[in-house]
């Protein structure tokens, strides 16, 4: 199982299709905090034509029993259409976007640009003393790039959290 470690904990990327209604995010977040589950990241946005449905991607971790509980608890919320454990159900693509602001002059500046190029980060803002890089990829890739920027002059980071989708023709539907 991907993300499984020795203590029996694993990471799960869970896709949740919900009615796009007031309070739905509070319901999901309240469920996690009220029952003591972890949220590593959470993203949400409307996904269908008439904006009636939203898709939440939540990355969580716990023992297999806890992750099964999380899925069952999410599934019994009234506005939830469908819950899928993307980590468990098969191959999937998970991506996160980050905006990374790096300061510096001279050689540090050049080094930041070279690394950005190697990581395929785009420059979306530049001043004489700073860059803002936009970068998309797995969480690990973002972590690696941010770690490299830290000694060069990392100023701040804004990350979206993970969006994920299964590979192939299957889809999450209620």
């Amino acid at each position: 199982m991907p993300g499984n470690d020795k203590s029996g904990f694993r990471t799960a990327t869970i896709g949740v299709l919900v009615e796009n209604e007031a309070g739905i995010l509070a319901r999901v977040v309240g469920l996690f905090s009220g029952r003591g589950y972890n949220i590593d990241s959470l993203t949400v946005a409307p996904v269908n034509e008439d904006r009636r449905l939203s898709r939440i991607t939540v990355v969580t971790s716990g023992t297999e029993m806890v992750i099964e509980q999380i899925k069952a608890q999410l599934d019994r919320l009234v506005p939830v259409h469908k819950v899928a454990d993307l980590t468990q159900d098969g191959p999937h693509v998970a991506r996160e976007m980050a905006l990374i602001k790096v300061g510096g002059k001279g050689e540090a500046r050049m080094e930041a640009l070279r690394l950005a190029d190697a990581f395929r980060a785009r420059v979306v803002d530049a001043t004489n003393e700073s860059f803002v890089f936009e970068m998309t990829g797995s969480g690990e890739k973002l972590d690696a790039f941010i770690a490299l920027m830290r000694p060069i002059g990392l100023i701040e980071v804004s990350r979206t959290g993970v969006a994920a989708i299964s590979r192939g023709t299957g889809r999450l539907q209620g």
Binding site: M65, Q69, A72, Q73, D75, R76
Partner: peptide, 11 residues
């Protein structure tokens, strides 16, 4: 009737 009751406390 509630799937979340199953395997919650006892496997």
């Amino acid at each position: 009737i509630d799937p979340s009751s199953i395997n919650k406390n006892v496997k």
